[in-house]
Amino acid sequence: MESLSLTDLAQEHLGKAREGSAGRSAVTVHGHHDFVLRQTLIALLQDQALAEHDSPREATLQVLHGRVRLTAGEDTWEGGVGEMLVIPPARHDLLALEDAVVLLSVGTGA
């Protein structure tokens, strides 16, 4: 069984986001192309966004640090530390309301 500290990884990638020009950093923590579940840790500095994109089949977003806003059409959801957002099956974007780290879990259907 593998174990890792999401808290430590979140701090590491917030540091990378602060050092880089894009204001973000990400790493896959579980899964790859032939797994059914893929989990990616994403760090975004305040006011950085993931532009609107298509929704995967099934996905959730767990907020590990900070606050984020998920927008799909006219609907918006905000999440803070410890909250989980279910990503709707629609085009959506994600905005960091403050420096934030999220764990994106996606069912790949593999």
Rank of each mutant, 00 (worst) to 15 (best):
D34M: 08
G80D: 02
V106L: 08
T60C: 04
D8W: 12
V102Y: 06
A90K: 11
E78V: 07
I42C: 13
G107Y: 05
T40V: 15
M1T: 09
L94C: 03
L104D: 05
A51E: 13
G66T: 03
L70G: 01
M84F: 04
V68H: 05
A110G: 14
T76G: 00
G31A: 01
G79A: 08
T60V: 00
I42H: 09
V29S: 12
T28K: 11
L14F: 09
S105Q: 15
T108Q: 09
H33M: 06
G73C: 00
A26Y: 11
A72R: 00
P56H: 04
H92A: 02
L50M: 01
H53D: 01
T28Y: 03
G23N: 01
A43C: 11
T108E: 03
R18H: 15
I87H: 03
G20K: 00
E2D: 14
L97K: 04
A17K: 07
S25T: 01
R38V: 08
S5Y: 08
G82Q: 13
L4F: 14
G79K: 01
H65N: 10
R24A: 05
V27E: 15
G109Y: 13
L104A: 11
D75Q: 04
G15H: 08
L64H: 06
A59W: 02
T60H: 03
H30K: 08
L95G: 06
E2V: 12
Q11A: 14
V101D: 05
